[in-house]
Design a protein around this nucleic acid. Sequence first.
DNA 1: ATCCCTTTGTCCTGCGAGTGGAGAAAGTCG
DNA 2: CGACTTTCTCCACTCGCAGGACAAAGGGAT
Lengths: 396, 396
Amino acid sequence: MRRMTARPANAHQARLLRLLRDGGPSSRAQLGDRVDLSRSKLAVEVDRLLETGLVVADGLAASRGGRRSHNIRLAPQLRFLGIDIGATSVDVAVTNAELEVLGHINQPMDVREGPVAVFEQALDMAGKLRATGLAEGFDGAGVGVPGPVRFPEGVPVAPPIMPGWDGFPVREALSQELGCPVMVDNDVNLMAMGEQHAGVARSVGDFLCVKIGTGIGCGIVVGGEVHRGTTGSAGDIGHIQAVPDGRPCPCGNRGCLEAHFSGAALARDATEAAQQGRSPELAARLQASGALSAVDVAAAAAAGDATALDLIREGGARTGQVIAGLVSFFNPGLVVIGGGVTGLGHNLLAAIRTQVYRQSLPLATGNLPIVLGELGPTAGVIGAARLISDHLFSPV
Amino acid sequence: MRRMTARPANAHQARLLRLLRDGGPSSRAQLGDRVDLSRSKLAVEVDRLLETGLVVADGLAASRGGRRSHNIRLAPQLRFLGIDIGATSVDVAVTNAELEVLGHINQPMDVREGPVAVFEQALDMAGKLRATGLAEGFDGAGVGVPGPVRFPEGVPVAPPIMPGWDGFPVREALSQELGCPVMVDNDVNLMAMGEQHAGVARSVGDFLCVKIGTGIGCGIVVGGEVHRGTTGSAGDIGHIQAVPDGRPCPCGNRGCLEAHFSGAALARDATEAAQQGRSPELAARLQASGALSAVDVAAAAAAGDATALDLIREGGARTGQVIAGLVSFFNPGLVVIGGGVTGLGHNLLAAIRTQVYRQSLPLATGNLPIVLGELGPTAGVIGAARLISDHLFSPV
DNA sequence: ATCCCTTTGTCCTGCGAGTGGAGAAAGTCG
DNA sequence: CGACTTTCTCCACTCGCAGGACAAAGGGAT
């Protein structure tokens, strides 16, 4: 089956497709309210979209006191694939054209195995999803990788934690493999786009999305658009100095935020505390599972373990200190905290908030919400779908 | 004389006006190369602009092997006023429509005297410039103030160093007084726009412009546009923590960058060093002039005074440390250093560079120039003129 | 001087986008 | 059953704009 051969022919059509994506099925009249076009022009463009098959008219809506309207919606068989490569796991999801997640799989994986192995696994997962009947094929795919990306070419560059990925033509290779258009971006940017599309950041123009997973990164949205920076490394805040002459970091410097707090650092510190006998809770968990992760620390803290709570608080304070600087600098309208460690929940959030509200300018923090992301692990894949749909729903 | 009653009627005309502003006088053919319009359409729009008087055709250019072209240029009598309010002085300049500075005055002033007194002085200076025959009147004015601004309304908000300015309707009041449109912005943003228009940042899309004067601020340019933030306080980096548990700052925190390095902090530290007998050079200068400023420190360092040099180096390192974080976060294509302390010159620049190149990610610093602004004190007023011309050269 | 070429600018025609009104279609409500 | 709403379609007319033809104005070679 050939898929989505058509693309919007002009800016009006692109606009209409995005309205239908974000606002759901609508009548021509409703579309007319949201777009600055005459009814006639609108009808012409909708008809053209109907001809191409990008949208369909299915059924009549209930009357609102007059003639019943036709429901216009994006073609129901359109499918986007979202692939979110993390440092230690892969998320793959299938969405419809409205970016609703129809199916979602997560599997552990080690990004250091290199792009070939990782994408083999990811494509296998995509194949499983397709086999369940959710999709006959994919009209586009968005891919997130845990490192900087040369965005126009869709190629990772100099990824510190991903040797073997540098220069691998992700976009081209996957496009070949899947037979559909592919866009590639940093995973943190995708998380930001996900929260912007369907999460807490809806209708916020300028915001920061801090993702604390194995590492720490920050999605930057300016005027509704992701800011990627000159070399695609914008938002790489894990190596900002948080502690002068602090812990050594693999990057060669000392005191980097990531060296003091991140999923990896937290696991390390928790293990150390357990081994040194400072935390019976953590020691018991280490005994039981052989290794500790952020989840264990969260559980220990919930069980009242003071050491675990301290680890969270101190990490939050370090993170908050860096975020405070970014807030003063960038003056966002919202800060979203996400990533694996959101399991640490409100203890972490409280520590971050305290630090930011204390250290940033009152004018910048006056009305600044700092909240947890609301999409959890689906933020990335929704953002990935959003990325490719933005690409496909733009004029020729 | 009534001035610039006309405004561009559509986006094409606005585009043409900006091309003429930035590229200087051009023939119709040259304009056609730079804009995506047919010759006929272009001719129509140029004719309309000629009718309105916004542009004029004066004389024929030399032949380039064929028919000689008419020179189209912005109306030569157009005048913009640029007012740059600093903490301790005012700059006022008059420019033509190409934003070339025709006259420029600087006078000492204390911003704490409040907006009424300050603008009385500024308008007096503008009057002097006009009296020299440079201008018969002003077609627009741009104003920079040393604090955050609610940009759409042109009103300063919560300026820490400017009590009495909070909420003062600068834009409205000055517009009334001058009888022309006025736009107001943070002085740092104007400096960035100045360097972007006529200085080192030409043709750079994303850059940071750090202004170190009495305080420290940072202009943020994203995709060619100034980022002002949600409450207009973006770029306020003076109160980012540079030294944990460092010097107390008037803002209530400790260790703010501004408390450790800025024009004011440098004067304070230099005076202290002179009084404690750590620097004969500075002591002699203190004796001679009664007070020290950044200029004295620069001179002392140039004369080989080790203490003065240390002050500069340490300040540069502190600043560089903060900038390193911002570079990792924002990944700019250029960092411009400007403001009063640029007199400290390459000693300061070297200290900043060392710190940034050491602390930021290689990918972000790989090809990152860190340079001094090239416009000096005119950057602000040129930026001010640019601000108002951007406003006036936009459709209705 | 003459002819040909280049460059610049103007004119004219035709196409297609887009507007706005008239009206048809399909309802609700009294 | 008629009055009123809402939705959608059709049509005539306007206007923006492209692109070719053409005029104007000059340079350079013969």
